[in-house]
Write a protein that binds this DNA or RNA. Sequence first.
DNA 1: ATGTTGACACCGG
DNA 2: TCCGGTGCCAACA
Length: 106
Amino acid sequence: MPERADFAERVLAAVEAIPAGRVMTYGDVAEYAGIRSPRSVGQVLAADGGTVPWHRVLRHDGSMAPHIRDEQRARLRAEGVRFHGQRSERVDLTAYRWDGVSTSAE
DNA sequence: ATGTTGACACCGG
DNA sequence: TCCGGTGCCAACA
């Protein structure tokens, strides 16, 4: 039988599908990949995220984890994503969140 | 098998 | 808005 699509593979595929200049939350990626735990998404990226645009995945409130905050912010900015807050701690999800369907920015 | 950890989400106060 | 507890699920010791 059939292979059991590695859940990690699906997560990576979902992240790779995010268009440049767009973002998704961990929860969105989990749903898109067909799994029920957003935490598992982070687990996968922590282990094998180097091969995908992990910087396009944010928390549900537009903030990001401390150890990757700087790198992630720099990369997103380079793609045209605007931040807000005094220290640019958050991304405006309402403007950049990708629905998983449209294939181009906006 | 059991317990801990983690790049999270949701809810109550 | 911020803080804390709970649910979640795979990896690891």
